[in-house]
Every structure is written in C-alpha cells, then in structure tokens.
Design a protein around this nucleic acid. Structure first.
Lengths: 111, 111
DNA sequence: TTGACGCGAAACCTTAAGGTTTCATATAAT
DNA sequence: ATTATATGAAACCTTAAGGTTTCGCGTCAA
C-alpha cells in the first residue's frame, strides 16, 4: 500500500513558529477556511496562507476546497514523531525530577 | 525564592535545528567540551559553539569551565514545556488513531 | 453579467539564521 | 619563557524566513 509520503517539511521546523502553533490550536476547533483563521492574527491573509502551506507540507494540516473557499483541517499524526523524540529524554525527569514531574502533572490535570 | 529565569530563547526554536537536536543527544552521554562535540559535525567548531549558546539560552544545556575547556551538560527540564504542549493533542491519537498508536509503540519497543 | 468574495502566485523587501575566517585570551605543557 | 590547546568574540557572507502588496482567477450573489 501507499504509506508514507509527505515529509516535505520537518515537523520540528513547522512547529517552531508561534503563529503556526497557534494555527494548530485554532484548527483544533474544527475545519476552517483561510479568512476565518487569518482574522486571529495581526498579519496579512497571504502570510497566514503561507504558514498553512508549511504546516501542510509537514502533514499537520490538510486542505479541502469547498466552493470558493479552502478549508483546513488539523492532522495531529505527525506530532507522534515529536512525541517519540521526546520520549528519549523522558527518563531525565522521571529519575531526577520526580517532584517537578508531579507538579507538571498537577498542572495538566488542572487545565 | 529565585525560580524561573532563563527563557532567553524559545525551546521550540532551539530544537528546530537538527544539529542542535544531535548535540542534545551527544550530551546525553555526559558532560563534554566543545572540541569533542564539534568532532561529530562537518561544520566549524565556532559554529557548534554558537549552537551551544542557543541551547544554553533555552536552558537545555549548561556550561562549566574546567581549566582551559568549557564543558557542556544536558538539562532536559525545559523539554517539559514541549511535553505539555504535546499533551494537548494527545487525545487525537488516543481517540482516533488507536491502530496507529499501537504501531508506534511497537516501533518504540523495537528500537 | 456584473460585482463582490476567497484565495494563491509573483515579485519584492528586511532581517535573522547558520556558516566561515581571523584574532585575542586564558590555561597547559615543555 | 615559549609553544601548543581550547574557546569565544568580531566581522562578514549567503540564504532562508516571515512579511507585504499587487494581480489574476474561480465561485457565489444580485
């Protein structure tokens, strides 16, 4: 079967930009067209559009044309690579930072 | 008490560069001086030194002068921010991507 | 059909990122 | 004392990143 294909852009790179991280969050609320998204930023629609392209090249979002608009949808799957990368360092805070770990978990629970 | 201080550089930004991610991995083996580290890269020692400074500004490494050398040590703690950010999307692969999740876990186990 | 809307492509600008080489300084070794 | 090591600061170069504005095209509404 087809399988992997998309790695045109690095995930780490893609999420490095705060605007792009925010876009992902916004899309968490569901599929949305470009203009709706760009309304949340102080930059031009075109600029937002470019960020969306980068996210798409990293496989984090997918577009779908509906009439005259292009709707973007979140795809969290590529974040698993990040999760795996992070897992490598997991032991650091499991072994040495027990107290801190508990603190963070409390934070997570409280959110 | 003192507490937080360092966020001179964004963690997401810091780990966006592959060279820097590799430096973190190398430091996982323990404290090391600049020259030892730079031996693993095709770039100049000075360039590596700059990457180390960026990692340090993000709190991911700490330096310690020993004689004429500067030894760098890994500090994984700032990665917790990344972990928390990621946790937000956790449900995506927990709810919708069960099969994929299992696949990845197998991958992790096999590694 | 005539507009208005929604969007991407192009061309262009500015600045930050990643690199390099050269130089100065502190510490170690002879 | 002299020489060799280890490293950061400076100055500089090139390219990619993030933005902007202008333009063209397909689509929906009057």
């Amino acid at each position: 079967m087809a399988g992997a294909a998309e790695p045109k852009q690095d995930v780490f790179q893609a999420i490095a930009d705060p605007t792009r991280r925010r876009l992902l969050r916004l899309l968490d609320g569901g599929e949305q067209p470009v203009t709706a998204l760009s309304g949340h930023f102080p930059i031009s629609r075109t600029a937002v559009s470019k960020h969306l392209r980068i996210l798409q090249d990293a496989g984090l979002v997918h577009e779908r044309k509906v009439g005259r608009e292009t709707r973007y949808r979140l795809d969290a799957e590529p974040l698993l690579e990040l999760k795996r990368w992070l897992a490598y360092y997991e032991r650091y805070w499991e072994n040495k930072l027990g107290a801190l770990k508990r603190f963070v978990e409390d934070e997570e629970a409280a959110e």
